[in-house]
Amino acid sequence: MSFRSQVHLSTQTLVGASSTIKFFSETILGHHFKEVELDKEEPQPGDLFLFKLQSPRAQWFGAHVGVYCGHGEIIHFEGRTSSHGGLPTLLGYCEGVVCKQGHRALQRSRRLWRVLRRRGGINPGELEQRVREAMDSDPPPYHPTGSNCIHFALNLLGVDLMTMDLDLNRD
C-alpha cells in the first residue's frame, strides 16, 4: 500500500470516527432527533433503535444501531469477523453483513438503550427504497469507525452528519 493510500485511509477513518462521536453528541441528538417511549407509542418507520454494547470487562461502551422498517422489522449492519479473529481484524475492515430482524426478537437478544425519531420525520417511500437497495446489494466492508452501523442507519434515513453539523452552526 502506498503512502498516499495509507494517508487517505487514515483520514477516512478519522472522519468516520468523528461522525460517529458527533452522532452521540447530545447537541445533535437533541436538535435532530427526539427520544420515543415505546410504552407510550408504537415505533414508526425510520425510528432508530439503539442497543447497548459493552465489553465483557466493561472497559468500553458503545451502541449498535438499527432502523425500524415497519411491519415489526429492523434493518441493521454489523461486522462479521473471521474465525481467525485477532487484533488486526478489530482495528481494520471485516466482512459487512446487513440483517433484517423482528424488532421484538432483536430486543430479546440485545439490551435496548433508547429509540430515536428524526424531528421533521422522514420520507417513507425513500426509506423503503433504500432498505430494498441495502438488502439487494453487496454490503460494504465493516469498520468500527469508518463504516459502521451508525453510518449505515443514517444513510438509510438520508442523513449526512457533516451537513447536520453545518446546520447546527447556522442556528
Rank of each mutant, 00 (worst) to 15 (best):
H32D: 05
V98L: 02
L112F: 05
F152A: 13
P45I: 01
V36D: 01
R118M: 14
H151S: 09
R170D: 08
T81L: 10
R130G: 03
F3R: 15
S83H: 08
Q44H: 14
S147I: 02
C69D: 04
G92R: 11
Q44P: 10
F24H: 02
L161Y: 01
H103I: 03
Q107T: 00
I28S: 15
C94A: 14
Q129Y: 02
M162A: 11
D136F: 00
G70R: 06
G86T: 10
M162C: 00
A58V: 12
R104G: 03
Q12I: 12
D39V: 00
G92P: 07
L127Y: 02
F51V: 04
W60V: 04
C69N: 04
E133W: 05
L157V: 11
D171S: 13
D39E: 10
R57N: 12
L127I: 04
E41L: 07
L9F: 09
D165S: 10
D138R: 15
V15S: 12
I21A: 09
K52E: 14
F152P: 14
F152L: 02
G158M: 11
G102M: 02
G146I: 00
E26V: 01
Q54N: 06
S109N: 04
V67I: 15
P45L: 06
I21E: 04
C99E: 11
F51H: 08
P144S: 12
G125L: 02
K100I: 10
N155E: 15
P139H: 11
R104W: 06
F152Q: 00
W113C: 12
E26Y: 01
H32Q: 06
A17Q: 13
Y68D: 12
G79N: 06
E133P: 01
S82E: 15
F51G: 04
F49E: 03
F24R: 11
F61N: 10
L112P: 05
G66K: 09
E26M: 08
T81H: 06
P139Y: 01
G16K: 10
R130S: 08
A105G: 06
S137G: 14
W113S: 11
A17V: 13
P124C: 05
D138A: 14
L38I: 02
F3W: 15
M164D: 09
L112M: 00
V36H: 02
L9M: 00
Q6L: 10
G102A: 07
P141Q: 13
E78V: 05
D138N: 10
L38F: 01
M164Q: 13
S25M: 03
I150G: 04
L38T: 01
R119E: 04
F23G: 07
G158I: 06
P88Y: 02
V97S: 13
S5T: 14
H71Y: 12
Q54C: 07
C69T: 05
G70N: 14
E95T: 14
